[in-house]
């Protein structure tokens, strides 16, 4: 049995596909692309399918992945690439198919590009001022449905600004914890930013660009 990891981007309209719906969409796509997938055994067999890390609704990503299993020794990944792309909705694009080397449990960080529309210089300094505060308190929802106050400031160390492209936006490259113990959704930061500075989250866009392990190796 082999576990195969399919890498894809989720953009445009597809940002609004919920995780639950995406699971069904991918199940169908695998079936449609006639991928030789392994079905779970038992009373109600279904395709074995796991996703590395669900993406919050509305965000884009160029580093999503899902895993399926197969009993086949060899897979024609080039053909699969074409077939899957034909079977997936607009905005979801498969770009690579690899053996799964790591378990999704090894993911500890995620890297994002956050684009702030507006004058690049001015935006950068406004946001940077906010990010360099000693303390940034936000309310974070806990898994049990409660709310807990936490300080984001200690987690913002890995950040840099991309050189301006002159297209009216400042672009922040930010790495945040994204593991099983702590997972920080960048929306949390943007909401706090809005409260402090009035910058509208809709003048920003978030794109997940990389998943990283605890020692900052790329998730494979």
């Amino acid at each position: 049995m082999h576990t195969i990891r399919v890498w894809f981007a989720k953009r445009h309209e597809a940002c609004y596909i919920s995780h639950l719906d995406l699971q069904r969409v991918v199940q169908r796509a695998l079936k449609l692309a006639r991928v030789p997938v392994w079905y779970t055994q038992g009373f109600n067999p279904h395709i074995y399918l796991t996703f590395a890390m669900p993406l919050p609704l509305g965000q884009q990503s160029i580093t999503e992945s899902f895993d399926f299993r197969t009993e086949q020794e060899r897979l024609d990944t080039a053909a699969l690439y074409w077939e899957l792309n034909r079977a997936l909705p607009r905005g979801i694009e498969v770009f690579d198919i690899t053996p799964a080397k790591m378990g999704p449990g090894q993911i500890a960080f995620a890297r994002y590009l956050i684009r702030f529309d507006g004058d690049a210089q001015q935006m950068q300094s406004r946001v940077e001022e906010f990010l360099s505060q000693k303390e940034i308190l936000v309310d974070k929802r806990t898994k049990r449905g409660g709310v807990r106050q936490m300080d984001l400031a200690p987690y913002l160390g890995r950040r840099s600004w991309l050189p301006g492209e002159g297209d009216g936006a400042a672009v922040l490259d930010l790495t945040l914890p994204a593991g099983s113990t702590l997972n920080l959704n960048p929306d949390l930061l943007l909401n706090a930013l809005e409260q402090a500075t009035g910058i509208d989250p809709l003048d920003t866009s978030i794109c997940r660009t990389q998943l990283l392990t605890a020692d900052f190796k790329e998730f494979e």
């Binding site: 445009h12 609004y16 596909i17 719906d21 169908r28 509305g58 909705p89 607009r90 809709l202």
Partner: peptide, 24 residues
């Protein structure tokens, strides 16, 4: 094609996928 106003609306509603199309 999804402008800022529409993004705002989509983020405020349940099941935004009802309004975005692009299905297979």
């Amino acid at each position: 094609m999804i402008d800022k106003k529409l993004r705002r609306a989509l983020l405020a509603v349940q099941k935004p996928g009802r309004y975005t199309g692009g299905e297979l």
